[in-house]
């Protein structure tokens, strides 16, 4: 009788856990959903506010316009404020991330680790999400983040894919299937950044005939320089079609003439 009760108790404890584990397919599907809901069928333009706080330094503040054409995998960022930054920008064409400085009229090929506008944000924070395409997931358990029930996933970069951080841990809200928290690790296993996503906005897209999701704000905490943090605020989004030739060096150059 005691043995039977023990077996029942063990089953009671382990069964929900087994049932809650996401299979590989489910995790890939979850990542694909996260990617897909942030992708627009047409063009995407956002006005973004960036603020970097560092110990003993004046806050670094930027306002930029982010342009995306997800169908062609194109991204451009044009800095609008303050005046000293106006006209600077980034352009991603396939594996190349170019930065442009109108002060010197030169383009420079940068890497995925480029600190956007001198802040601790990276290209991936503004670009379309490609988690399913770039990473292999594994299940890291489920739990609570504050009052939210979350799945925890560990992502490992796929071979021959260039990303800023090869390992990511995600805390995904079970209810809304949105990322709430993200930790990014270097190849050595050292935690580099922690990002919190407290707000997710959705806006109806005519071209997609569905909602497009984007983070309302991102709070990035530097885990190496513990006193540094970055605040990213998506102020507004515009889904109207962009100029056909926008994602070119010539277009970005023309904005500072």
């Amino acid at each position: 009788m005691t043995r039977l009760l023990t077996c029942v108790a063990l089953l009671a404890v382990t069964l929900p856990a087994v049932a809650a584990d996401l299979t590989k397919e489910e995790m890939v599907k979850l990542l694909a959903d996260i990617d897909d809901r942030q992708r627009n069928g047409g063009d995407f333009k956002a006005l973004v506010y960036l603020e970097q706080r560092e110990k003993d330094k004046a806050d670094l503040v930027r306002e930029l316009i982010v342009y995306r054409r997800d169908a062609d995998d194109r991204l451009m960022m044009l800095f609008a404020k303050p005046k000293s930054e106006e006209g600077k920008g980034y352009l991603r064409i396939d594996k190349n991330l170019w930065s442009y400085d109108p002060n010197v009229g030169k383009w420079e090929r940068t890497t995925e680790r480029e600190r956007i506008g001198g802040t601790n944000s990276r290209r991936r924070d503004f670009d379309e999400s490609r988690l399913a395409e770039e990473y292999d997931p594994s299940f890291d358990g489920e739990g609570k983040l504050g009052a939210f029930d979350v799945w925890m996933l560990k992502l490992q970069v796929k071979p021959n894919v260039d990303v800023a951080y090869p390992t990511i841990k995600l805390w995904v809200d079970k209810n809304s299937r949105n990322i709430l928290k993200q930790e990014e690790y270097a190849l050595s296993g050292r935690l580099m950044r922690k990002s919190l996503y407290p707000k997710w906005n959705k806006v109806y897209s005519e071209s997609k005939k569905a909602d497009v999701w984007f983070p309302g704000e991102i709070r990035i905490y530097d885990e190496v320089e513990k006193s540094n943090s970055t605040y990213v605020l998506f102020k507004s989004v515009d889904l109207k079609p962009l100029e056909a030739n926008l994602f070119t060096k010539a277009w970005l150059e023309s904005k500072s003439r």
């Binding site: 504050g146 009052a147 939210f148 709430l180 906005n201 806006v203 109806y204 309302g216 507004s236 889904l239």
Partner: peptide
Amino acid sequence: LFGQGGSVVNESVTS
């Protein structure tokens, strides 16, 4: 940010 619960989702409009 997450202690109070509720929804993290906001309806937005294109501008």
